[in-house]
Design a protein around this nucleic acid. Structure first.
Lengths: 135, 135
DNA sequence: TATTTACCCAGTTATCCGGTAGGTAATATA
DNA sequence: TATATTACCTACCGGATAACTGGGTAAATA
């Protein structure tokens, strides 16, 4: 598994927020209920997105979360990298070069690197807008 | 992580066997030492490959393992699927359709399926021969 | 018969995912 | 001012899985 529930939840929340009235703040409780995600678990995810400037958060009554860019301003990759940390398909490429002592003679390393670039390119080519429209 | 050490070890072993004199049986001990893999752990991996007919095994003195096809006869995908079980990047596509109750309205599902096909196509397009030659 | 090999089964340890519990700080409304 | 509503913070927990390890048994050759 390259993407856990954390990342998948994050994407679904971003899509949900994109579908709300422009400018409105949506409380976490509403998002959690609509998307059937554990409220407490979602808190941690939203905090990550908020700190990274992906969403705008407002405390108190009438507060909640909202997007601060148009949906096409968010790539799927940018969101997943936040919640997942790394999207590398193998630890060989995830932990930087020379993490593996055999990296200089590993016959498979070039393949892993190629796959890594392919996956990264894929995720960077899809935006929240694309998920909305089903493109 | 989509591919664990198990799958990566399996690939390295296949490449190692492909580099040995044609027809020769190589004992597991030798493979483990050359590739710096735990002998006991490698046993489990070789048994999987042997049962699936990927390698030929012979007991007793002078025995060991050898390939039974030319290197281009093994796709990376066919080996990884054996040791990893599934190469799906998300559980949404790994556990078959309708594993997730939201699959009929999930805005991200088409993307996961597309990625799934892309990764599968990638692994099926690379053979042990390619790893040998560094193509 | 002894040695070399593959094969089988049952632990073990550490890590991490997914989720929970209980609080504090900020904002709005009555 | 008091109260309700919201985001944010720290800590914990149970189960699953990865990556081994140990102790055997069965088959083949010298």
């Amino acid at each position: 598994m390259i993407v856990s529930t954390k990342g998948r939840y994050a994407l679904r929340v971003m899509v949900y927020l994109a579908q709300q009235p422009p400018g409105a703040y949506i409380p976490l409780k509403q998002v959690a209920e609509a998307e059937e995600i554990s409220q407490k678990y979602l808190e941690a995810i939203m905090t990550i997105l908020s700190k990274a400037g992906m969403v705008e958060a407002v405390h108190g009554k009438g507060g909640g979360y909202r997007l601060n860019r148009p949906p096409e301003g968010y790539t799927v990759g940018s969101i997943l990298k936040l919640t997942e940390g790394s999207l590398a398909p193998v630890s060989c490429t995830a932990e930087g070069p020379a993490a593996c002592s055999r990296s200089d003679c590993c016959p498979a390393l070039p393949m892993w690197e190629k796959l890594d670039r392919m996956i990264d390119g894929f995720f960077e080519s899809v935006t929240i807008r694309d998920l909305l429209t089903g493109t």
